[in-house]
Design a binder for these strands. Structure first.
Lengths: 145, 145
DNA sequence: CAGAAATAATCAGCACACTGAGCATCTGCC
DNA sequence: GGCAGATGCTCAGTGTGCTGATTATTTCTG
């Protein structure tokens, strides 16, 4: 039984894709704010005053991971985390003015970065890639539930 | 400036894809041996007696990451790490019998898992997805060099 | 109203993945 | 032979991401 060709393994390719992306992100978007952090800021622009659990569903991240991540954003003053007076279990989250500013700046840069990242593909291929990944990811996340 | 639709962001999708994959991996392939670890075992089946740097190029992982990862595999007795007597800087890597056994077992299971993972796509779409990811990842890794 | 169940967050522990710094070793040039 | 640069590895530090256990709070039920 010999070795296998990893270039036909979606998991290995997904890891490489993610890795390559985060490297380019560091170079073209921000060294301080990571891509998952941007996802959180973006979710809070869309839906302010949600708790960490709701947030975690929105960005498809674990509750523990969200806690760490939000703590880092709060330390940097981009997010405000307040205990809900009506329900003492929940942390209500909100962007600060700084958080809004950072998000705004990164929106432009991520758009630029995505163009570079997907430059090897033509318009049709880009759409196909995004659609296929989403289908597989959606289905696998379903499996979990 | 409002929020952005993350489902059109390849980085976010890549992370979700990778996440979904590693979850399914834990359920269907192995809880002890992770997907990157399997990639390392597989590379050593193909090319024994290489050093960590060469290995890191093969599986597209950082030198530091490889060091950690190989240390874990060595601790579990799957890999042997010997200082090269001809070049005292290099660690020469080799699978143990246990390592070969584990690799063999996982080859079958990963094949099964990949079928489940890609089940939402038809045969043509599967090929397209893998090919497109590889093109983007290759190009981005080029950019780095 | 009291106890049980459900829910939200936190914490410890592990793996992956990077950067940047440092150390040992080897190679090439003088 | 000796020094400079290149090379391979390790280490410290940080961030992402998970599981499983614990804690606090709320809600449901008898």
């Amino acid at each position: 039984m010999g070795a296998v060709d990893l270039s036909t393994h979606p998991g290995h390719l997904a890891r490489r894709l993610q890795q390559a992306h985060s490297l380019l992100w560091g170079a073209m978007v921000s060294e301080e704010t990571t891509s998952p952090q941007f996802a959180v800021l973006n979710a809070l622009v869309e839906k302010p005053d949600i708790d960490q659990r709701t947030l975690s569903e929105h960005v498809h991240l674990d509750r523990s991971t969200i806690a760490d991540l939000v703590a880092r954003l709060a330390r940097r003053g981009l997010v405000e985390r307040v205990r809900d007076p009506r329900d003492g279990r929940r942390n209500v989250l909100k962007l600060t003015d700084d958080g809004v500013r950072v998000h705004r700046k990164l929106v432009t840069r991520t758009a630029r970065m995505n163009r570079v990242f997907l430059a090897p593909l033509d318009e049709g291929e880009r759409e196909t890639l995004l659609r296929l990944i989403a289908r597989v990811a959606d289905a696998a996340e379903e499996l979990r539930a």
